[in-house]
């Protein structure tokens, strides 16, 4: 419950916040003399979290960064869950595909994911950014890269569930009245694997947010004018001695988000899976 409240507060902060706090996160004072005066301001009424080394308002940047971070987490999770569920259902339902799809899953599990993600970002970031624009291109690349490298656990869970569900009487009944496989999967199998998928999805959001911020932290994530919490933290580290709050705020935001999402995922698992209740 506490976790849901914290997450709710963070979501309100990043979604509603910019409607109230109407400062452009990328606004740099065009007049150079004024800009220099605005740099590195401590927290004040005009700038509750101070300003950064270019005089941009930190509060506005935190809100904007949170939007991007959460969006990355959500979309990457959708990509991963989509692939994972598709692979899992196929492997569980069609025995012929099972072997090859599970080998594929094993192969992906044996890939060194973080180094591979870094390589992907290094090689594809600039070309993709050139064709699709630096913001949308990077977003798409990061989301796809994280999604493609994190679907394996979901597919394994789904496969296990489907293998068990497939033998149930109602699936047999559906098959005996001549329902095609596609309808059986959509009507009878998918709704019943929803709860493990939901748990995997929740934990997947947390993983995706962490992965994105790691990429940003290693300097291979979003460009500086399109900040995420990870990127803000990365930018803050250069001046951690003089302005530690620029590391603390984004780091705290990431940690609280991931912590509350993980707690919600755990709670969901306990609520949806009666077998492990009371552990």
């Amino acid at each position: 419950m506490v976790a849901a409240c914290v997450l709710g507060f963070l979501i309100v902060f990043v979604l509603v916040g910019p409607l109230i706090w109407r400062i452009d996160p990328n606004f740099i004072e065009p007049d150079t003399a004024k800009m220099f005066k605005l740099r590195n301001k401590p927290p004040s009424l005009a700038h509750p979290m101070g300003t950064d080394q270019l005089g941009r308002d930190m509060l506005a940047r935190m809100m904007f960064g949170g939007r991007v971070s959460l969006a990355v987490g959500l979309v990457a999770m959708f990509v991963a869950i989509f692939i994972g569920t598709a692979v899992g259902v196929m492997a569980g339902f069609f025995r012929r595909l099972d072997g090859i799809l599970m080998r594929l899953t094993d192969l992906f599990l044996a890939l060194p994911l973080l180094p591979l993600l870094l390589v992907l970002m290094m090689l594809f970031r600039d070309p993709v950014a050139r064709t699709l624009g630096p913001r949308f291109g990077t977003f798409l690349l990061i989301v796809l890269a994280i999604g493609v490298t994190s679907w394996m656990s979901a597919s394994r869970v789904v496969r296990g569930e489907v293998l068990a569900l497939k033998e149930r009487e109602y699936v047999l009944a559906a098959r005996s009245i001549g329902l095609p496989n596609r309808r059986i999967i959509l009507r009878h199998i998918l709704p019943n694997v929803l709860s493990p998928v939901l748990v995997a999805a929740t934990l997947g959001i947390a993983g995706a947010i962490i992965t994105e911020s790691v990429l940003s932290f290693l300097g291979l994530g979003f460009p500086p004018d399109f900040p995420t919490w990870g990127r803000l933290l990365y930018d803050g580290i250069a001046e951690i001695r003089s302005y530690p709050e620029r590391v603390i705020w984004p780091g705290l935001a990431i940690s609280l988000t991931v912590l509350s999402v993980n707690y919600i995922g755990d709670g969901l698992r306990d609520a949806l899976d009666p077998r492990i209740r009371g552990r």
Partner: peptide, 22 residues
């Protein structure tokens, strides 16, 4: 363990640097 699992190492690392080193 939940905190240790959720809080990314680049944040704990920098907080520790901030407190104990700086």
């Amino acid at each position: 363990s939940m905190v240790g699992y959720s809080v990314p190492t680049f944040f704990t690392g920098n907080v520790l640097i901030l407190i104990f080193a700086i």
